[in-house]
Nucleic acid binder design. Structure first.
Length: 820
RNA sequence: GCGGAAGUGGCGGAAUUGGUAGACGCGCUGGACUUAGGAUCCAGUGGAGCAAUCCGUGGGGGUUCGAGUCCCCCCUUUCGCACCA
């Protein structure tokens, strides 16, 4: 469709911008010519532009997906125009509870439903005009993919990083499966369905991510990530420095033993007036005296039954006395040992020394059970004699009192001195503790990769040999989970009965599947090697393309996907499979879009369906609008009424190209503005400041068309390239109309001439006493003396200046401020 | 409670290092062209005032020739985490 003939014919009506036809045309051409294909082998300047892949829900592509992908696509297209070989793959995160729950709801088997959803997604994504090389598309549900997910599990198992243990785990009674800590949100609700989570004691598979806590934390200082994401990871890893102290117990019943506690405040040990163990602490049993047994057992019974939410939201203190006492190693005094659910088994050692004078929780507990409260730190203006009505907790810059030989020490010095002193007796050592727990990866569900383990009566836990991978997920009709604590696969003996790979005796497969977050914690390694069934990631192509150059995604994955990916990359690095240990060199978190000031939700019926908008406005206008509605890293407010602005911009661009002339010379001032625009857009795209880049281009087109002038070719053509990352179809069309060869994306990004972009004459702001009084037009490089003369000549300024100025402040090129 | 982000016209949002507050877009007002236009184009658009001018970036102080921007104290919204010793 060559418009050049009609364009020059004054009798035919102007050709209008028809996005539907143009977009269809170019999507077809891209496919035919392989425009979006990247030659992974021969690429000279590899640039891996990764976006977080979607799970293919039945509802179809969400506008949030498109917002995320478009932002990445613009960055990728820009980098290609800058001369990089950009690889922009996309795939489907199709395993997991979300997909499975939906399948259950609509009564369609996921093996049927998922391919259907993927097909729909594929259609939607292709209509959005993304520069994706679909030859490297993957789906985590594909056996050729999850074979390697299982391989990954085996690697961790080999290294002793995957282990099985009976533990109190988070159980979602609605999803009927365990959840990782990261999937329990708002203090005790299932991330997926919002149901209150229960605690259950079950045998589960874990990955030792906590071993990597120090490295996961330290490396954050060296990677180029959004600060918000790094902060979230730092908080989640939760490093705290302190000491582990040992308390001997007095023999009450049975043998004496010692209780280890973790504290960040060893300086307050003289104020430790009692101890508390978590109800499930193993020492509770031996320490409980016959007299107290009934009460203790009742309390333990109560706390295990209690759901997490009640336990975590209430700050009321409950507990029971064990009947035993421990010796405070500093004071030598006997202190009672209690149990309470405010002490968590999962953190530290599951036991604390309680210092009610300086910890609010201990204070509340002491008040409840009438335990002694001793002040051992005083503040600067504080005599430490007045009784406390709350714990004196912010005592970090306090001084020790009632602490024997340490009286008068400041808190920091005391922390060190007391640990050193107690260490001599072997009852203290400095310790660093992390909040990060091991990652529970087994799920009692159907829709995931089976964990490749076989249990044998003689050989025990046996990994499935690599050559037998993948362990295929069988098709079963009754995939609905139940409350039994085991996967639906456990109902299928024909599947789980297998020969032990070691001895050949009949064994039993592990029937749990792995967490969905394991599927997606390594997919970026797979893309460049898609199609290779011999290895998970081929060596040379991995070396060339990884780590990922640029990753853009949602911050909701800050402590899930993004942390797990880093962990697994480190593990693979340590095992010699990768030569880097951080997967994503650069990560930027994008914002989220709301609609008309409200959250988008199905129940509110305000979901934006991309199909309708693309059909009505065109993908280019839709993309441009999504990027224009707010700063990309902050998200923004989607308003239907505003899309017309983006469409008008493209209309005007299209019209300008149709009406432009090659005759004569371009206007000097317009060309100056053009170079300023090139500079602005070139600076804004790398900062992901897409909204201001678009604003600059809009401003420019207004200048080009001002007063219905006929624009010159030289004024307009470079703008087509500037627009190309945002609106690729119209850019290709206009490029072709003007004799461009091949794809515009194989051409070069325009450069700007700094000399031309600089204005000769500027508007110098004139202030009197800091208030703007006037503006004078002066040469850009005017000196202070001349500027002052020009300023004082201005009548609006002269009015305010009587006599000689006291002081003059001159900012070259900007303003002059006369102080009188 | 802890941690993060943010409070700017009617609305979405601009504003390198402190230096013209409100770019750009939506909406609105007026006009042009039109049989008509929800199309297109032009002009205007923070508030008050005829005007000179004054007031304006959540509130209150401060630093400075000059503060949306820096400092102190509050208030609000929002998102994470949450009895982490």
């Amino acid at each position: 469709m060559d418009n050049s003939a009609t364009r020059n014919d004054p009798l035919s009506p102007p050709v209008a911008y028809d996005p539907t036809a143009i977009e269809r045309k170019w999507q077809r051409i891209w496919q035919q010519r392989g425009t979006n294909h990247t030659d992974l082998q021969r690429a000279q300047r590899p640039f891996y532009a990764l976006m977080m892949f979607p799970y293919p829900s039945a509802e179809g592509l969400h506008v949030g997906n498109l917002f995320a992908f478009t932002g990445n696509d613009i960055y990728g297209r820009f980098q290609r125009l800058m001369g990089h070989n950009v690889f922009e793959p996309l795939g489907y995160d199709a395993f997991g509870i979300h997909s499975e729950n939906y399948a259950l709801k609509v009564g369609v088997h996921p093996m049927e439903l998922i391919p259907r959803n993927i097909e729909n997604f594929q259609r939607q994504l292709e209509s959005a005009g993304l520069m994706v090389d679909w030859r490297y598309r993957l789906a985590t549900t594909d056996p050729s993919y999850y074979k390697w997910t299982q391989w990954l599990f085996l690697k961790l198992f080999d290294q002793g990083l995957a282990y099985r243990k009976k533990a109190a785990v988070n159980w979602c009674p609605s999803c009927k499966t365990v959840l990782a800590n990261e999937q329990v949100v708002s203090g005790g609700f299932c991330e997926r369905c919002g149901t209150e989570v229960e605690q259950r004691l079950l045998e589960q598979w874990f990955f030792r991510i906590s071993d990597y806590a120090p490295r996961l934390l330290d490396n954050l200082d060296h990677i180029d990530w959004s600060e918000t994401t790094k902060t979230a990871q730092r908080n989640w890893i939760g490093r705290s420095e302190g000491a582990e102290l040992k308390f001997e117990t007095r023999k009450v019943s049975g043998e004496a033993c010692e209780i280890r506690v973790f504290t960040t405040r060893p300086d307050t040990i003289y104020g430790a007036t009692y101890m508390v163990l978590a109800p499930e602490h193993p020492l509770v049993e031996p320490l409980t005296t016959a007299k107290e047994k009934k009460k203790v057992d009742a309390y333990r019974e109560r706390t295990t039954k209690q759901d997490l939410v009640a336990r975590k939201t209430s700050t009321d203190k409950t507990g029971a006395f064990t009947g035993s006492y421990a010796i405070n190693p500093a004071t030598g005094k006997e202190i009672p040992i209690w149990i309470s659910d405010y002490v968590l088994m999962e953190y530290g050692t599951g036991a604390i020394m309680a210092v009610p004078g300086h910890d609010q929780r201990d204070f509340d507990f002491a008040k409840e059970f009438d335990l002694p409260i001793v002040r051992v730190v005083r503040g600067e203006r504080d005599d430490a004699n007045t009784p406390l009505d709350e714990a004196f907790a912010e005592g970090e810059n306090g001084t020790l009192v009632n602490s024997g030989m340490f009286d008068g020490y400041d808190v920091d010095a005391a922390k060190k001195a007391i640990v050193e002193y107690l260490a001599k007796a072997g009852s203290a050592k400095p310790v660093v503790n992390y909040r990060l727990h091991d990652w529970c990866i087994s799920r009692q569900r159907y829709w995931g990769p089976p964990i490749p383990i076989i249990y044998c009566e003689d050989c025990g836990t046996v990994p499935v040999p690599e050559k037998d991978l993948p362990v295929l997920l069988p098709f079963i009709e009754d995939f609905k989970p139940d409350d039994s604590g085991v996967s639906p696969l456990a109902r299928h003996e024909e599947w789980y009965r297998v020969a032990c790979p070691k001895c050949g005796k009949t064994g039993r497969r592990e029937t749990d599947v792995s967490d969905n977050f394991l599927d997606n914690s390594w997919y970026f390694l797979r893309y460049p090697s898609v199609g290779n069934d011999e290895v998970p990631f081929e060596k040379s192509v991995t070396k060339k393309w990884l780590p990922v150059t640029s990753y853009i995604g949602g911050n909701e994955h800050a402590v899930l996907h993004l942390l797990y990916s880093r962990f697994l990359t480190m593990v693979l690095h340590d095992a010699g499979h990768l030569d880097f240990e951080e997967p994503f060199t650069r990560f930027r978190a994008h914002g989220h879009i709301i609609r008309e000031g409200a959250k988008m939700s199905k129940t509110q019926g305000n979901i934006v369906n991309p199909d309708e908008y693309i059909e009505k406005w065109g993908a280019d206008a839709f993309r441009t609008y999504l990027m224009f509605l707010g700063p990309y890293e902050q998200g923004g407010d989607f308003r239907d009424a505003s899309i017309s602005g983006s469409r008008r911009f493209l209309d005007r661009l299209f019209a300008s190209v149709q009406s432009m002339t090659a005759d004569g010379e371009p206007d000097h001032e317009v060309m100056r503005k053009l170079h300023q625009t090139i500079r602005k857009v070139s600076e804004d795209i790398p900062r992901l400041s897409y909204n201001t880049a678009i604003a600059a281009m809009m401003e420019y087109i207004n200048v080009v068309r001002r007063g219905e002038r006929t624009p010159h070719r030289d004024e307009v053509l470079p703008l087509i390239t500037l627009v190309a990352p945002f609106a690729p179809h119209i850019a290709e069309e206009l490029w072709e109309q003007n004799g461009g060869k091949g794809s515009i994306f194989d051409s070069a990004w325009p450069t700007f001439d700094p000399a031309l972009a600089a204005d000769d004459m500027i508007e110098l702001v004139v202030q009197v006493n800091g208030k703007v009084r006037s503006r004078v037009t002066v040469p850009r490089d005017i000196e202070e003396k001349e500027a002052l003369v020009a300023a004082l000549e201005d009548s609006a300024v002269a009015k305010f200046v009587t006599g000689a100025p006291k002081k003059v402040i001159f900012v070259p090129g900007r303003l002059i401020n006369v102080v009188v």
